[in-house]
Design a protein around this nucleic acid. Structure first.
Length: 147
DNA sequence: GCCAACGTTGGC
DNA sequence: GCCAACGTTGGC
């Protein structure tokens, strides 16, 4: 799961009450569908810092609440307001994630691209701008072993 | 700051 | 349903 550290980095998540925060503001259907359909309680996710000096994986978090309406879309004053979404028919979904750990070092995008074993990773595929992407078990373990 | 790669919008 | 125009993402 990507986030820009200037906006919301892993340190911010760590400092939240209960080290938990809702992953709001996703306004892409593919990413939404993953939060709605695929992400289950207890699932782990990498925290990825994007659009920064050293893009890469910086930590791990856990899904502590499954998909529910992103209520920021209902607030006309919010940056993520979407008039096409309302409480009766919510268009956007978020999950709650809890901080698990910060990696001892950043596993950089450059590294992830370098390893042949990770060539199937959506993150390293050309032009992929999704903010949430799947990681399978083999990829997960391989990445963790790089730490 | 540049720009490639996408996603979305809206006219037709 | 097509596709040009536009906006956004995000690495570099």
């Amino acid at each position: 799961m990507k986030s820009e550290p200037d906006t919301f980095g892993i340190t911010e998540l760590c400092n939240k009450p209960n080290q938990t925060e809702h992953w709001d503001g996703v306004r892409n259907y593919q990413a939404r569908n993953m939060m709605r359909d695929d992400m289950k309680l207890g699932d782990l996710a990498f925290f990825y810092h994007s659009n920064c000096d050293v893009p890469g994986i910086v930590g791990i978090m856990e899904v502590v609440k499954e998909g529910y309406p992103d209520f920021f879309a209902f607030d006309p004053d919010d940056k993520y307001f979407d008039p096409k979404s309302d409480p009766e028919h919510p268009r956007w979904i978020m999950v709650d994630v809890k901080y698990v750990k910060t990696l001892s070092r950043t596993i950089t995008l450059k590294e992830l691209k370098f390893h042949e074993e990770l060539s199937g990773l959506a993150l390293v595929r050309r032009g992929n701008r999704l903010s949430i992407m799947p990681v399978n078990k083999d990829q997960w373990e391989f990445i963790l072993a790089l730490e």
